[in-house]
Nucleic acid binder design. Structure first.
Lengths: 138, 138
DNA sequence: CTTGCCTTTGACGTCGACGTCAGGTTTTAG
DNA sequence: CTAAAACCTGACGTCGACGTCAAAGGCAAG
């Protein structure tokens, strides 16, 4: 398929696809006139790349690791880098979990103070109890 | 305390601290000669801001939510935004967990294939003759 | 052949969270 | 008092992952 269809099927812009190629995250066959042609597998490849981007990896890191992830084989060196990145992700998860719990506490605290009628302001704001109750299920 | 000490105690650069102030993430008293002076509580404030940055929030979002988090009180509206951000973080955790598990699988697979010396292809993919890995010989 | 969308390369623009440099003032140490 | 260190306000630079525009060619339909 050509670049436009790949873009539509992955939800990634053509600009991004060319950028990925430039960064060696993706390869393309070329027709005699220079147009890019991709195999079906490119779709999965893009989705993997997107996933790794979302996980916070840089294009350089992804370029180094994707062949490994795709082929399922790696040198001990690559395996090590893979483990390192896994560690970063794990750390990030821990940080996020911490922050989420903290926000939970704040939300719970604020809800409680509103429930008990604890004054939040010298000039009390009109509180709609319906919205307070429905804040958790949107 | 002045900005230098606050920077040292938080591990954040003075440039960042001034930037935070510019973004309304932080306020400072000024001496008659214009120098910033911070209370002890500023340290915790900065650490909170850093935490929220790490969680992927923008300075604008942080500016809107920190007063709420710090004071432990909020309008229903703010509480709602807080819940929304919590949701984003939760989603991010889910994505990261997914990716981490995927990397784990790759690592496990690669380790196994190295141990047994066998290619780990459970289901042979239609590999076209193009050199995907770029390994011409060996 | 012409129309009109698709694709090509190249290059500048963007945005967020700062880094860094410049040039001047304030505080502190001796 | 002097010199060094810390601080001040601009203001331009950076980096990564693209967006966007321009000029030129390619591809199927009528």
């Amino acid at each position: 398929m050509r670049i436009g269809e790949l873009a539509r099927r992955t939800g990634v812009s053509t600009r991004a696809l060319r950028y990925y190629e430039e960064q060696d995250l993706l390869t393309a066959e070329r027709s005699s006139t220079g147009q890019r042609h991709y195999p079906e597998s490119a779709v999965a490849r893009i989705l993997l790349v997107r996933e790794l981007f979302t996980a916070g990896l840089s294009s350089r890191t992804i370029a180094e690791l994707t062949p490994c992830v795709v082929d399922g084989k790696a040198t001990p060196e690559l395996l090590n880098r893979l483990a390192v990145e896994r560690g970063h992700i794990d750390q990030h998860i821990a940080d996020l979990t911490h922050t989420r719990d903290r926000l939970d506490a704040v939300i719970a605290g604020a809800s409680a103070s509103m429930d008990t009628g604890t004054p939040c302001r010298p000039d009390p704001v009109p509180t709609d109890p319906a919205q307070v109750g429905g804040a958790t299920s949107t």
